[in-house]
């Protein structure tokens, strides 16, 4: 395997690359804090609001009885008319 160098041939470019790295880092940090679409980034867990199921006091059977009674009253009114 060849020995690889990650140094720079042009000295003036060192400062340029340091500035570029800062800009890149700013983009990465910004993406991690504003979006969940960054692989490996952290995002706040999304919590669904708790659903509370409350049984009515009458219950289902009671509901049907009332509906049937109403129908019977309506039928009587129509018949009398």
């Amino acid at each position: 395997m060849p020995v690889l160098s990650d140094g720079f041939a042009a000295g003036s470019r060192i400062n340029g690359c340091a500035a570029m790295k800062k800009i890149i880092l700013a983009v990465v940090v910004s993406a991690m804090t504003t979006s969940s679409a960054w692989a490996g980034g952290l995002s706040e867990p999304v919590l669904e609001p708790e659903v509370i199921v409350q049984e009515s006091k009458a219950g289902k059977k009671g509901g049907y009885v009332i509906e049937l009674a109403l129908l019977a009253v309506l039928a009587m009114i129509i018949e009398n008319n």
């Binding site: 160098s5 990650d6 140094g7 720079f8 041939a9 042009a10 470019r13 060192i14 340029g16 690359c17 340091a18 570029m20 790295k21 890149i24």
Partner: peptide
């Protein structure tokens, strides 16, 4: 190539 070496 120098830029790539510098930022990676």
């Amino acid at each position: 190539m120098e830029m790539l070496a510098g930022v990676l």
